[in-house]
Simulated scan of single mutants.
Amino acid sequence: MAKYMLIMRGNDESIAKMMETPFDEMLTTMGRFNEELIRAGVLVAAEGLDDAAQSVVVDVSGPAPIVTDGPYGETKELFGGFYILDVASKQEAVEWAKRLPAFPGTKIEIRRVPGIDEFPQDNEWIIKERAWRERTGQL
């Protein structure tokens, strides 16, 4: 099994369509999908994000960080939420992403989340992180 993150990216069209949808209807649709993931035993985490207009951007490309009100860059492809699934393969992650109830114009990026076992186990910081994960029940 491997973890994959499904990153939901909206554009102006998909965000407008989402805003037209009654909130209860959206919750029901997403709730049904989430229930499928839970029943299949693959859901690790899932979160939607608040309105990008409420975001703050910290730009560290210059000599000193610059903080500005968001959203960052173009609204063509805003990061709107994510799922983390623990599945057998990238293809299985793709199959779940194809079933995700999304508004027209949404893109779903899929990226593998490397496990802690893939890093050098004798590294001081990996040892500390492993201990923290064990203390918090994540391992």
Rank of each mutant, 00 (worst) to 15 (best):
M1W: 11
M1C: 08
M1R: 14
M1F: 13
A2S: 15
Y4T: 08
M5S: 05
L6C: 08
R9T: 05
R9N: 11
E13R: 10
S14D: 02
A16M: 05
K17M: 00
M19H: 08
M19R: 04
E20D: 01
E20L: 00
E20F: 02
T21M: 06
T21D: 00
P22L: 02
F23P: 04
F23V: 14
D24Q: 13
L27D: 10
L27K: 10
L27V: 12
L27P: 07
T28C: 10
T29G: 05
G31L: 02
F33Y: 09
F33L: 07
N34I: 11
E35H: 15
E35L: 12
E36V: 01
L37Y: 04
L37G: 00
R39E: 14
A40T: 09
A40R: 10
G41L: 03
V44P: 02
V44R: 06
A45T: 02
A45M: 11
A46T: 14
A46S: 11
A46K: 06
G48L: 03
G48H: 03
G48Q: 01
L49F: 13
L49G: 05
D50H: 15
D50W: 15
D50R: 14
D51S: 03
A52S: 12
A53H: 10
Q54L: 15
Q54Y: 09
S55V: 07
V57E: 08
V58A: 09
D59T: 09
D59I: 06
S61D: 06
S61F: 10
S61K: 01
G62Q: 06
P65T: 03
V67P: 05
V67I: 15
T68D: 07
D69R: 14
D69H: 13
G70Q: 00
G73L: 02
G73N: 01
G73Q: 07
E74R: 14
T75D: 11
K76G: 12
K76Y: 05
E77V: 07
E77I: 01
E77Q: 12
E77M: 05
G81V: 00
F82S: 02
Y83V: 04
Y83A: 05
I84G: 04
L85I: 09
L85H: 00
D86T: 11
S89H: 05
E92N: 03
V94A: 04
V94R: 02
W96Y: 09
A97D: 00
K98L: 14
K98E: 15
R99Q: 10
L100H: 10
F103I: 04
F103D: 01
T106I: 11
T106H: 00
K107W: 09
I108K: 02
E109Y: 07
R112F: 09
V113Y: 03
V113F: 06
I116W: 06
E118Y: 07
E118L: 09
F119N: 04
P120W: 12
D122K: 08
N123T: 08
E124G: 06
E124V: 12
E124R: 10
W125A: 14
I126R: 01
I127D: 03
I127K: 11
R130V: 12
A131E: 13
W132S: 15
W132L: 15
W132Q: 15
R133Y: 11
R133C: 11
R133D: 02
E134C: 06
E134P: 00
R135Y: 08
G137M: 05
L139F: 12
